[in-house]
Simulated assay, not measured.
Amino acid sequence: MPTSLVITVLVLFLNVASQTSEALDPFACDPKDGMSRNFTFCQVNLPTKSRVGDLIGRLTLQEKIGLLVNGAAAVPRLGMKGYEWWSEALHGVSNVGPGTKFGGAFPGATSFPQVITTAASFNATLWEAIGRVVSDEARAMFNGGVAGLTYWSPNVNIFRDPRWGRGQETPGEDPVVAGKYGVSYVRGLQGNDGERLKVAACCKHYTAYDVDNWNGVDRYHFNAKV
């Protein structure tokens, strides 16, 4: 993600404290921390754009870079804790990444059919409804302290070859269907409130990434000629 988008998502999440239980510590702008009162980016009554600009202006280049990796580094001088970006929810909240943990009060989550099958319905209302249920469960897990609020979903790569092992998690080979699916599922995940994200969707993967170990060429090193 570009740094500015990362910061925007972080600032939108600073509103989380007002939506969740008091026992859940916020990522930043902790009302118990007197330092937070001095930061413009902690003023929830201000527009998100103003808060983003203030936070970016306070970060050093090294701190910005530290926010771009999976385990985003803490920025103690600004009262910002570390954050694990990696969670996935392609057809339900998954524990495949370190940002989500099943167990205890959350032994699992609803698993909907693989995307290749729900996409075959050509039903955009269904796609959005699934995203809405998934984000309901994601929020519940976040409130329970076992999940984050960012999800690497949906997968909008075009399914060009049946040998690709991730094809079933895509909407298929039609770019139009993939585009409509992506819009609907993201809307279901994120909600419709422009100032607050229910969760944050991050479409994956990189352009034309649909190769898995073909003739010894792995997905990290092949040359994607579009």
Rank of each mutant, 00 (worst) to 15 (best):
Ala109Phe: 07
Thr110Glu: 01
Leu67Thr: 01
Val176Ala: 15
Leu189Phe: 13
Val146Met: 10
Gly71Gln: 15
Ala178Glu: 04
Arg139Thr: 14
Glu84Pro: 01
Leu189His: 10
Ala109Val: 05
Asn123Val: 11
Val177Thr: 11
Arg166Lys: 03
Asp161Tyr: 05
Gly179Trp: 07
Arg166Asp: 02
Leu126Asp: 07
Pro154Asp: 12
Asp136Trp: 04
Thr125Cys: 09
Arg160Met: 11
Ala124His: 09
Pro154Leu: 04
Pro162Leu: 08
Ser94Ala: 11
Ser87Glu: 08
Ala72Asp: 00
Trp127Ile: 09
Phe106His: 09
Ala89Gly: 11
Gly104Cys: 07
Arg166Leu: 05
Gly66His: 01
Asn95Ile: 09
Ala109His: 08
Asp136Leu: 06
Trp164Glu: 08
Ala129Val: 12
Pro154Ala: 10
Gly179Pro: 11
Gly82Met: 12
Phe142Trp: 00
Leu67Asp: 00
Ser184His: 10
Tyr83Ser: 01
Glu84Met: 14
Gly182Ser: 14
Ala129Trp: 01
Val69Gly: 09
Ala72Pro: 03
Ala89Arg: 03
Gly144Cys: 12
Met80Ile: 13
Ala147Asp: 02
Gly104Ala: 12
Gly99Glu: 00
Phe102Leu: 00
Leu189Pro: 09
Pro175Trp: 09
Tyr181Pro: 06
Gly99Asp: 03
Arg139Asn: 11
Glu84Ser: 14
Pro154Ser: 13
Pro154Trp: 06
Val134Leu: 07
Gly82Arg: 04
Gly172Glu: 03
Val115Tyr: 07
Val134Cys: 05
Asn70Val: 13
Phe106Gln: 03
Lys180Arg: 14
Gly182Pro: 00
Trp127Leu: 10
Val177Asp: 11
Gly97Ile: 06
Gly131Ala: 08
Trp85Val: 01
Asn157Ile: 05
Ser87Tyr: 06
Val69Met: 05
Val69Ile: 09
Val156Arg: 10
Glu137Val: 02
Gly104Trp: 09
Ala124Trp: 05
Gly103Asp: 04
Tyr151Val: 03
Gly144Glu: 04
Asp136Tyr: 02
Pro171Arg: 01
Asp136Gln: 00
Arg166Cys: 10
Gly92Cys: 12
Ser111Trp: 12
Ser87Ile: 15
Val93Tyr: 02
Lys81Ala: 15
Trp127Lys: 03
Phe122Ser: 05
Pro154Cys: 08
Gly165Trp: 11
Val96Lys: 13
Arg166Met: 10
Val146Asp: 12
Ser153Asp: 01
Gly145Lys: 13
Ala109Asn: 04
Glu88Ala: 14
Val177Lys: 10
Gly92Val: 05
Gly79Asp: 15
Gln114Gly: 15
Thr118Leu: 15
Val134Lys: 00
Lys101Gly: 06
Leu149Cys: 06
Ile65Trp: 04
Trp152Gln: 02
Gly131Asp: 04
Ile130Leu: 13
Gln190Asp: 12
Pro98Arg: 15
Gly144Phe: 11
Val186Ala: 07
Val134His: 02
Lys101Arg: 15
Ser184Phe: 06
Gly71Leu: 10
Gly167Ala: 04
Val176Met: 15
Tyr185Arg: 08
Lys101Ile: 15
Val177Arg: 05
Gly82His: 10
Val134Gln: 02
Ile65Gln: 07
Ala147Tyr: 06
Pro162Gln: 15
Val186Asp: 00
Gly182Val: 01
Val156His: 10
Arg139Ala: 10
Gly145His: 04
Ala138Phe: 01
Trp152Thr: 00
Lys101Ser: 14
Thr100Gly: 03
Val134Trp: 01
Asn70Phe: 11
Gly172Met: 03
Pro162Arg: 11
Gly182Glu: 02
Val69Asp: 06
Gly182His: 05
Arg166Phe: 09
Ala138Trp: 06
